[in-house]
């Protein structure tokens, strides 16, 4: 059974890799390594949508550190995405600095804000914590609207990127590389001694504390790692994805979308949130386009809601989580004596 699962997993991975490498010829063409006019496939919108999925998958993976591996639910997570996006946008567009400085600024800003928000709010638990994070995110939203000489207010800030970043094929591969690096780093973190303590906190906070672990410090640490990764995703959004920083990123809307990705894919599985990000982002792009078929699709969020309710009812561990449990229980049924 275990073998079968590994085999099935291998197939999934192989197909995915093939799919991800489809635009390879185009990458070569884009950088003048083969004749450019020979390759006009896959189309730009395929690359754009994929890059968007990669970037949101990073946000979902960073959210999984909180919800899946530490057991804390934040409603203000996308604040960090906004911080990252604005950091690079302001550095480049308002201060005329290099995007690299913007990336550094984004890391520093999102780390600082994570530590401040975390140490002020993580003493509270459950709903109270969630509400406080929502409040912090809303403060960020209002600031982004009001400091319009810096942020562009309602209009947001469009980022003029260097020429090589204006190329969608390059963006695609940068996004893919970004997701891969973050994914494996986060997986490594969850398998580290610190990651194990985070799991202990998720399982039983009081016990972890009684063992001598400084629970608040670990939670602030988890929130900082997660916040910095979300900040980097914001940078990616402003440079290779939408190339735009907008105040609405800090509202609860995007956070709830990320929560949806994580829950649908499978909390605490890391691959689940990536899958969830792909599903939710592609659906929220494709569903409004079906309005010609039925006016129902004008209310496309309804379908996301149905998916969410369906997941909670029928696959409480999410898609990947349920897949893993099913294989594991089948395995135990066969090999456990008695």
């Amino acid at each position: 059974m275990m073998l079968k699962r590994i085999k099935a997993d291998r197939w999934i991975i192989a197909v995915l890799l093939l799919l991800l490498l489809l635009p390879l010829p185009k990458l070569l063409a884009a950088n003048g390594l083969i004749a450019a006019d020979a390759v006009n496939w896959p189309p730009i919108h395929y690359l754009k949508r994929s890059t968007d999925v990669f970037v949101w998958a990073v946000v979902a993976v960073s959210y999984d550190i909180l919800i899946g591996f530490t057991g804390i639910v934040s409603f203000g997570h996308s604040l960090f995405v906004a911080v990252g996006a604005y950091s690079v946008a302001i550095a480049v567009m308002k201060l005329g600095l290099s995007p690299v400085v913007g990336v550094l600024a984004a890391v520093i800003a999102s780390a600082l804000i994570s530590v401040v928000v975390g140490s002020l709010s993580l003493r509270l638990k459950g709903h109270y914590f969630a509400m406080i994070t929502l409040a912090f995110a809303e403060v960020g939203h209002v600031l982004a609207l009001k400091l319009s000489q810096w942020t562009g207010g309602e209009d947001g800030l469009s980022v003029r990127v260097p020429l090589w970043l204006a190329n969608r094929t390059n963006d695609y591969y940068l996004g893919l590389l970004f997701l891969a690096v973050i994914f494996f780093t986060v997986r490594r973190i969850t398998e580290s001694p610190t990651g194990r303590v985070l799991a202990a906190i998720r399982e039983n906070e009081h016990r972890a504390q009684a063992l001598g672990y400084d629970v608040t410090a670990y939670k602030v640490g988890a929130m900082t790692i997660s916040g910095v990764i979300a900040g980097l995703a914001g940078v990616a959004m402003a440079t290779i994805d939408t190339q735009f920083a907008i105040a609405s990123l800090a509202t609860s809307g995007p956070t709830i979308e990320v929560l949806l990705m994580t829950v649908v894919g499978g909390v605490g599985t890391l691959t689940g949130p990536v899958l969830g990000a792909a599903m939710i982002r592609l659906l929220s792009f494709a569903l409004p386009g079906l309005q010609d078929i039925s006016p129902l699709f004008a209310r496309w969020q309804l379908f996301l809601g149905l998916i969410y309710v369906g997941t909670v009812m029928f696959l409480p561990d999410g898609i990947v989580g349920s897949y893993r449990t099913r294989v594991k229980t089948a395995f135990q049924r066969i090999f456990t004596p008695g």
Binding site: T185, R188, I189, P193, V197, G212, G221, I225
Partner: peptide, 17 residues
């Protein structure tokens, strides 16, 4: 986890448990 709590591994988040 209880054993680890007494060893000062600190906040090592890139080492493998």
């Amino acid at each position: 986890l209880a054993v680890q709590s007494r060893a000062s591994v600190g906040y090592r988040f890139l080492a493998l448990a």
